[in-house]
């Protein structure tokens, strides 16, 4: 089948890449662009490790997204979350609260948490539960993950306040 050239922006970097119509965003990022931070799990939408964020900050399972549909669009992956050379408050919080064990699901958890906290820095328990429901983490039991998200939320809230004052 004929390949199609698409223009895809990942973490602010513009790429032009030839993709087959059936190739997923996950495959193109990992295999054509060598961006392996986003993990490959079930490739069937059931584990969440491949989660990235779309332009509007929406949660995308990149294993279910067809690359051709992303022509002219942009995504953020776990490789694009850091702020300059600093870890993002969510990343820092995950690290400091022991929310990372094997780390294989971590990119999915971080991107799900980011999608939530980008629009809501005062999430309820239910908000967090719902936002994280798409990612299976076998190691942490989600307990420290939830704690890390709550702590990150408070850091981000403070930042909003300071930002508002300045």
């Amino acid at each position: 089948m004929a390949k199609q050239l698409i223009a895809l922006t990942v973490n602010g970097d513009p790429y032009e890449v030839a993709v087959s119509p059936h190739q997923t965003l996950l495959e193109v990022m990992r295999d054509s662009l060598n961006l392996t931070g986003t993990k490959r799990g079930c490739t069937a939408g059931s584990c969440g490790v491949c989660t990235v964020n779309g332009e509007q900050g929406e949660v995308i399972l990149s294993c279910l997204a067809l690359a051709v549909e992303w022509d002219g669009r942009s995504v953020t992956t776990v490789e694009g979350v850091e702020e300059g050379n600093e870890l993002h408050p969510i990343q820092k919080s995950f690290l400091e609260h022991g929310a990372v064990q094997c780390g294989f699901c971590t990119p999915g958890l971080i991107m799900s948490a980011k999608a939530l906290l980008d629009v809501n820095t005062s999430p309820s328990e239910t908000d967090i539960n719902e936002a994280m429901a798409g990612v299976i983490c076998r190691c942490t039991g989600h307990i420290k993950v939830k704690k890390a998200i709550k702590e990150a939320a408070s850091v981000l809230r403070e930042r909003e306040v300071n930002h508002g004052e300045s």
Binding site: T36, G37, K39, E79, L87, E96, G103, I110
Partner: peptide
């Protein structure tokens, strides 16, 4: 203590076998 490899794990820099090229 935070895990020493934690910064790599939260930023997508950790390499797993499926990432080997």
């Amino acid at each position: 203590w935070s895990r020493l490899d934690g910064a790599d794990k939260v930023s997508g820099r950790s390499i797993f076998a499926d990432d080997v090229r």
